[in-house]
Design a protein around this nucleic acid. Sequence first.
DNA 1: TTAGTTGCAAATCGTTTGCATCAAG
DNA 2: CTTGATGCAAACGATTTGCAACTAA
Lengths: 145, 145
Amino acid sequence: MDNTASYSELLKLKGLKNTKHRNSVLKVVELSEQPISAEQIYFNLKESNVSVNLSSIYRILETLVNKNIVIKTNLTVTNKALYEFNFQIHKHHLICSGCKKMLSIEGCPLEDYEKTLQEKSGFSITGHSLEIYGYCNDCKNNYKS
Amino acid sequence: MDNTASYSELLKLKGLKNTKHRNSVLKVVELSEQPISAEQIYFNLKESNVSVNLSSIYRILETLVNKNIVIKTNLTVTNKALYEFNFQIHKHHLICSGCKKMLSIEGCPLEDYEKTLQEKSGFSITGHSLEIYGYCNDCKNNYKS
DNA sequence: TTAGTTGCAAATCGTTTGCATCAAG
DNA sequence: CTTGATGCAAACGATTTGCAACTAA
């Protein structure tokens, strides 16, 4: 999914107008190795000489999130929202408290747990957010207390 | 831990000055059944005729978080920070997407998982944040799509 | 006495909104 | 043509900061 046509199709499929800016934002988000902020998207596009207003980026992201094409996250550390492409593969992130780099972890340790919890709590469980924190190999030694 | 003396001791133990306002904030946070926002703390204190400036509350919370006396959380849904007393009992929250009520879940499904992950990833894992979303019994039926 | 704490007002930062213009269907 | 998308500037809400006055140690 790295050619422009497929973004157009995706948008059409979800009942959204196929605009240049939506395509651009989608591309940046999809190709980003890590969840990315609205501002980062803005500058990233600027570097490619694509000028999109920051508020438009927020609006585009909002619609993409509503359509479940993009996932929005809020980390305790950053206090700004991060966005990532929804590849439909359930995964989590391992975040380095030193350099803030994020590693994707595929596979989820919570599937069985949620079923049990659903029965015990009476909640109808729809999802979860899990982030794991630590220090990566590079940062391990710089943060010894 | 619901008497004033123990808050003073806790502060002293952590090398913090024992001030009235810190005691008040600690008390509100500790007695709150759910993670609570700075603003909620502010109004809660106001009702008890304790006047603390909102910016002081933020500063107090910051120091308490740094000393690991209080835990800060950021939910994707609310976009404001919530604070809870660190009882040292590891637990998570089950959050109703309807009425936003939060249930505490004790026990953690991740302990073994983290050990494995630590070996596989080379990260030195320090902790995690997990929130589980769903609809509670009361809200289940109001949100059928 | 001195370093750390607080109140107050102003600044900051991420995000949202109103409105006029523009482009996709 | 019509509805929805965008740019721009201004508004917003949560949080932070500078500074002077104060208080715990």
